[in-house]
């Protein structure tokens, strides 16, 4: 049974007083910028050359439909996000399973493994940009020693994307590990012991006991990483600048360029608005499937 307002204090006045800080916070810090962005999206406004925003009907939104570069950026972002998320979940899961076996020095290992996650993304980008650099980078050097291919990592579309994926997986697989390791630790050990007594193999343990109990967390981790990777900017900015050509110009980089290199704040705002709407819909589907999965697993 829901709590009645009167039960919270002396009526509605008390409720509003208590709720006001949160309402103000949401209104000032969340809603107002979003509304302003939407408003700007309906205007032609070059922050440098236009004296004031000019209402331009829905021209910016129509431009979005025609903008091939934006479509390409969205495609690249989706491609990057799916591959990065898959790699990070697989690596994170493998690392979590390993740590769950309680190897010697587990806490130290966990600490070391989590370090990339706490580094600034720009530092991660700089470090990996240097590692892949043909002149001073360790990776081309090792490949040279091993008589491997002499690749221009940042100069060809495929290798530049691969370098970004490696950097992203290095930085964020630890987060997945952390989430899944916590989930694994919560599985009662008796389940494993009972299964082993019944002769279950390692794969059967994983398939029948572990996976059903960590599915929810795997979905959480995958969802978090998918959305975060979709909006990746820092490492792209530092490592490739969106190039070569536009082969790594993800949607965040596209918006950044529109807003801060071309100063087209109106158009950038329109793109942000549409992107926000698309992501909100995607997030709604994700939550729905997440809860359905949990229900199916009786969790």
């Amino acid at each position: 049974m829901g709590m009645k307002w009167a039960a919270l204090g002396s009526g509605r006045f008390y409720f509003w007083i208590m709720a006001m800080p949160a309402v103000l916070y949401v209104a000032a810090w969340r809603l107002a910028p979003a509304v302003y962005t939407l408003w700007l999206g309906l205007h032609q406004y070059n922050i440098v050359y236009d004296a004031a925003p000019r209402w331009n009907h829905l021209a910016n939104f129509l431009q979005i439909l025609r903008d091939g570069a934006l479509r390409q950026s969205l495609g690249l972002s989706a491609q990057f996000a799916v591959i990065a998320m898959t790699a990070e979940v697989l690596i994170g899961l493998a690392a979590a399973l390993f740590l769950d076996t309680d190897p010697p020095g587990r806490n130290l290992l966990l600490g070391v493994f989590l370090m990339p996650m706490i580094m600034a993304p720009v530092v991660v980008g700089t470090a990996w940009g240097t590692l892949f650099d043909r002149t001073v980078g360790y990776i081309p050097y090792v490949l040279r020693l091993l008589h491997g291919p002499q690749l221009q990592w940042m100069a060809t579309p495929g290798t530049a994307m691969f370098a970004l994926l490696v950097a992203d997986a290095w930085e964020w697989a630890p987060l997945v590990t952390l989430l899944l390791f916590a989930s694994l630790q919560a599985i009662p050990r008796e389940h494993f012991e009972a299964a082993r007594v019944d002769g279950a193999s390692g794969w059967q343990l994983f398939r029948r006991i572990i996976l059903p109990q960590i599915t929810g967390m795997v979905l959480v981790a995958a969802g978090l990483r998918l959305m975060d990777a979709f909006l990746e900017l820092d490492k792209v900015f530092v490592m490739t600048g969106g190039g070569p050509g536009s082969s790594t110009q993800f949607v965040s980089m596209f918006i950044y360029k529109q807003a801060f290199q071309f100063y087209e704040l109106g158009y950038a705002s329109a793109v942000i608005t549409v992107l926000l709407a698309v992501l909100a819909v995607a997030y709604w589907f994700y939550l729905r499937s997440y809860y359905r999965t949990l229900e199916a697993a009786n969790l």
């Binding site: 100069a155 969106g242 070569p244 050509g245 536009s246 110009q249």
Partner: peptide, 10 residues
């Protein structure tokens, strides 16, 4: 950006 795309074979 177009030149970069052409030079990289994109």
């Amino acid at each position: 950006q177009a030149m970069s795309a052409a030079m990289s074979g994109q």
